[in-house]
């Protein structure tokens, strides 16, 4: 879903940890009204997530092609076939490679931007507004703009600067296609962590820096001893969100490379999509989706452990 949303939820998680534990209030009135209030939530949520999640698990045990009216239960054979084929492993490798590069660069760039913006700069609001804007536009638009830039603009710049390196379309070359997609993704993904980092940095008491400066600590030393402990909660939120976004990446790949060239950008979601809708291996694709779910569940559990670890700020 929209990364903005996730960032918002996660940042509220940081703030609201532990609140649900102390239940104090009990309503003695209007039992029926309260139940009525929850019925739409129960209905919509069950219909959309509950039913589809359970039927996904069920379909993963069948050989259904998604079209015919009859199919057979085949037990775990979809899963066995998936793990016997090399495709899922090479796909997982690409996915994790993608996620790691995405996380590394997004964190590095956004932290540096936030540090550069942190101390009193008159144009802070201006810079922040501009840096945040890429997160606002749809990733379809962003991808298409960059698609055109890779196709027309970079080779033109290469000509002007006499750089042969830029003369090829990044997305068309098997060796560089993944990096081309990553450039677009990073361009959009840096915005939210930057804003969150700025907020985290501004929670550090200024006196700490002053006393550190009096003690003769340099910039780098005061970053590691003062700043870092304060922004660890924000950092862990950003890390996990970014990693999750990387592992479930789909839209960018579909629009920019469609899994190609030569399968070099075939991430797991792409595999699910093309098996499920393209080659009519519906049951098989569902089994792949369940595997992705297990990976995400593990990542999310790590996320909760991370979020429950208390940084200095809490």
């Amino acid at each position: 879903m929209l990364p903005l949303w996730w960032a918002f939820v996660a940042s509220c998680m940081v703030r609201m940890r532990g609140i649900m534990k102390n239940q104090t209030s009990t309503a003695k009135y209007g039992k029926i009204t309260f139940v009525l209030f929850t019925l739409p939530a129960l209905f919509f949520y069950t219909m959309i997530w509950g039913v589809n999640f359970v039927s996904g698990l069920y379909y993963s045990l069948t050989d259904w092609n998604g079209l015919t009216s009859n199919y057979n239960m085949v037990g775990l054979s979809n899963y066995i076939r998936i793990f016997k084929s090399d495709r899922i492993f090479s796909s997982l490798q690409i996915t994790f490679q993608y996620a790691l590069i995405l996380v590394t660069f997004t964190m590095l760039i956004s932290l540096l931007l936030a540090l550069a913006l942190n101390k009193k700069i008159r144009a802070l609001t201006f810079f922040r507004s501009v840096f945040f804007f890429p997160a606002m536009i749809s990733l379809v638009t962003a991808s298409l703009i960059f698609d055109k830039i890779f196709f027309y603009v970079l080779p033109k710049i290469g000509q002007l600067l006499h750089l042969d390196m830029l003369s090829n379309n990044l997305l068309a070359m098997p060796d560089t296609a993944l990096y081309g997609v990553l450039i677009v993704n990073i361009w959009q993904a840096v915005a939210i962590p930057t804003v969150l980092f700025i907020a985290g940095l501004q929670s550090v008491p200024n006196e700490l820096y002053e006393s550190a400066a009096l003690d003769g600590a340099g910039n780098i030393k005061s970053f590691f001893s003062i700043t870092l402990p304060y922004i660890i909660p924000v950092l862990s939120v950003n890390l996990v969100l970014s990693f999750k976004a990387g592992i479930t990446v789909f839209d960018y790949i579909l629009i920019l490379t469609d899994g190609g060239p030569a399968g070099k950008t075939e991430v797991v979601s792409m595999l699910i999509y093309s098996h499920g809708f393209g080659s009519f291996r519906f049951g098989y694709a569902n089994a792949e989706a369940v595997i992705l779910f297990v990976i995400i569940a593990v990542v999310s559990l790590i996320q909760i452990t991370f979020l429950n670890k208390k940084g200095v700020a809490s």
Partner: peptide, 27 residues
């Protein structure tokens, strides 16, 4: 009831869209 409903709904955070994408298109 309310506690179960709450955790039932929150659990969706663990489920990426790709997992329900195929069954959703069918249903």
């Amino acid at each position: 009831y309310y506690k179960t409903l709450y955790y039932f709904i929150i659990m969706g955070i663990f489920i990426p869209f790709q997992v329900i994408m195929l069954p959703l298109s069918i249903s």
